[in-house]
Write a protein that binds this DNA or RNA. Structure first.
Lengths: 196, 196
DNA sequence: CTGATCCCTTGACCTGGATCAAGGTCATTT
DNA sequence: AAATGACCTTGATCCAGGTCAAGGGATCAG
């Protein structure tokens, strides 16, 4: 299997590619972590200590409300980042959970290490800015859709935009991500498949 | 009245404060623009050309759906930023509108100028990264609330967190921002005020 | 002063989606 | 191989919030 760090460095090639020095700094300041299915990278009440890059597997980030119902905020597949940025930067306890939906391999960068990378190698500032801008734009569009479209339209859009997730992730979690109950999602699916 | 650029520079003091050189560069690479009530900073189909900082006034960013219904995505008051980042960076046509709800004064930074600032003065990369991270965290929380709370709870939270907006902005726009109809928001308000 | 616009409210009725309950199928554990 | 638990489905019923329609008070332009 390929070296996880190679995968991460290749990922940065999509932005401003890293040079040798930066690659080495990144290698030294990050660590590989393996999670088994249903393992937690973060639990409510803890400070989110790692900015995590998914090398392999699938994770979800969610909040649990007073009634114990979970609300999925984000999924992360291979080559995606997952972190509670608020908790991570403020070093305050998080209200979120990050859980592996499959056995997963992630690369973790801790707070002090990321600060080091930011200040010693400004390219990281740039790259992480662009990465989060992209995520921000996606989240804005999702917010708009949440307010402007029906559950059926949101689900159709999700399946179209994220076929890999639709195939790998249980419907319960997709329902929660879309903001509907699993029962209703089930009805939606049976309706649309009957349409064909 | 105070120089708008002063206000912008002061705003950056909340992050990594700018030195003389950076302040001058910023002044040279930005421009002040005044909008009258109902004036547009961006209209659907145009490329979003300015990263805008509100010096005075109040703006909203929204999308219009096929039926002509508007969906508010964001408000911006004094000392806040407003831009369709997706359109701005990709230099692609936007699907959004940015409209002044009051006579407003904004400072605009155009695409080429911001790139210049980013590359010549890395502190801007840093500061804009932090600014957008903060906005991202807020948007995540809003998304969670949208899926986890009732309209009544969301409205109560909005009034509590944004009293200035609740006072300055017509209810139609707040309703759209919260994802409910103006009629229903009106009922919510009359219910809660009767509670006292 | 006088229409136009906005903007808000209230009523009557309707519907998308929630809730509750039950049963069914796998896959994992023991 | 039985038992547990995760996941999906379907039915019956309910309700938060939408839709449509009408009226009324501000505010602003001519």
């Amino acid at each position: 299997m390929i070296d996880p760090h190679e995968i991460l460095c290749t990922h940065f090639d999509r932005y401003l590619a890293l040079d040798e020095v930066e690659r080495n700094a990144l290698r030294e300041r990050s660590s590989v972590r393996r999670l088994k299915k249903r393992g937690f990278l973060l639990q409510e009440g803890e400070v989110c200590k790692s900015y995590a890059f998914v090398v392999e597997g699938c994770l979800r980030m969610y909040e649990m409300d007073e009634k114990g119902v979970e609300h999925n905020l984000q999924f992360a597949l291979e080559n995606e980042w997952i972190v509670d940025i608020g908790s991570f930067h403020a070093e305050k306890p998080s209200s979120l959970f990050i859980e592996a939906l499959e056995p997963s391999t992630v690369i973790c960068i801790e707070h002090a290490d990321l600060l080091y990378l930011y200040t010693e190698h400004p390219k990281f500032d740039r790259n992480f800015r662009v990465i989060i801008e992209d995520q921000f734009v996606e989240l804005q569009q999702r917010m708009l859709r949440r307010n402007a479209s029906s559950a059926e339209q949101r689900h159709a859009h999700f399946v179209e935009q994220h076929p890999a997730l639709a195939a790998r992730v249980p419907n319960v979690h997709i329902a929660s991500y879309l903001g509907v109950t699993p029962e209703f999602l089930s009805r939606l699916k049976s309706k649309t498949s009957k349409g064909r």
